[in-house]
Amino acid sequence: MPDLLTLEGRKQRAKFRAWHRGTREADFMIGGFFDRYHADWGEAELAWFEALLEEDDVDVMAWAMKTQPAPPRFEGDLMRAMQELDYVDIPR
């Protein structure tokens, strides 16, 4: 059955998945990245993020913190933005 979600519907699904990773650290990093940048995303950017959500959190976090190189399929402007880490807002 084809995926009938609109771009906005896919963003809502991605937001849920970004904020429900399993650890607080991953939630803040991946969810925070989504919250900061998703408003300007089109099909290509959202597809990139949806693919990123399929990866293990430990890998995504390592790529974002530059402790491991990101695979070529994730390199580019979005990964560079993720590596800034200026979107992580940890509540006190």
Rank of each mutant, 00 (worst) to 15 (best):
1 M>L: 09
2 P>F: 11
2 P>R: 12
3 D>R: 11
3 D>E: 11
4 L>I: 05
4 L>W: 11
4 L>S: 06
5 L>H: 10
6 T>W: 09
7 L>E: 01
7 L>Y: 06
8 E>N: 08
9 G>H: 08
9 G>R: 10
9 G>S: 03
10 R>F: 00
10 R>M: 03
10 R>L: 07
11 K>S: 04
12 Q>K: 15
12 Q>P: 05
13 R>N: 00
14 A>F: 01
14 A>E: 01
14 A>W: 02
15 K>L: 11
15 K>V: 05
17 R>Y: 10
18 A>K: 01
18 A>G: 02
18 A>L: 05
19 W>P: 04
20 H>T: 14
21 R>F: 05
21 R>E: 00
22 G>Q: 08
24 R>K: 12
24 R>E: 11
24 R>A: 05
25 E>L: 07
27 D>E: 10
28 F>I: 06
28 F>E: 04
28 F>V: 07
29 M>P: 03
30 I>K: 00
31 G>D: 03
32 G>T: 04
33 F>D: 07
34 F>M: 06
34 F>H: 03
34 F>S: 01
34 F>E: 02
35 D>Q: 09
35 D>K: 03
36 R>T: 08
37 Y>L: 13
38 H>F: 13
39 A>C: 04
42 G>K: 12
42 G>Q: 07
43 E>A: 10
43 E>H: 11
44 A>S: 09
45 E>Q: 15
46 L>D: 09
46 L>K: 02
47 A>N: 08
47 A>L: 05
48 W>G: 02
48 W>C: 04
49 F>Q: 02
49 F>P: 03
49 F>W: 14
50 E>L: 13
51 A>D: 09
53 L>C: 04
53 L>P: 01
53 L>G: 03
54 E>R: 15
54 E>A: 10
54 E>G: 07
56 D>I: 03
56 D>A: 14
57 D>T: 04
57 D>G: 05
57 D>Q: 04
58 V>Q: 15
58 V>R: 12
60 V>A: 14
61 M>K: 11
62 A>V: 02
62 A>E: 12
62 A>R: 12
63 W>R: 03
64 A>T: 06
64 A>P: 01
64 A>F: 10
66 K>S: 13
67 T>E: 13
67 T>F: 07
68 Q>C: 09
69 P>T: 05
70 A>P: 14
72 P>D: 13
73 R>W: 08
74 F>A: 13
74 F>T: 12
74 F>D: 10
74 F>Q: 12
74 F>S: 10
76 G>C: 12
76 G>D: 05
77 D>P: 13
77 D>S: 15
79 M>H: 05
79 M>P: 06
80 R>T: 14
80 R>Y: 08
81 A>R: 15
82 M>P: 05
83 Q>D: 13
84 E>Q: 15
85 L>V: 11
85 L>Q: 15
86 D>K: 13
87 Y>K: 08
87 Y>W: 04
88 V>Y: 01
89 D>M: 12
89 D>T: 15
89 D>E: 14
90 I>Q: 02
91 P>N: 05
92 R>P: 13
92 R>V: 15
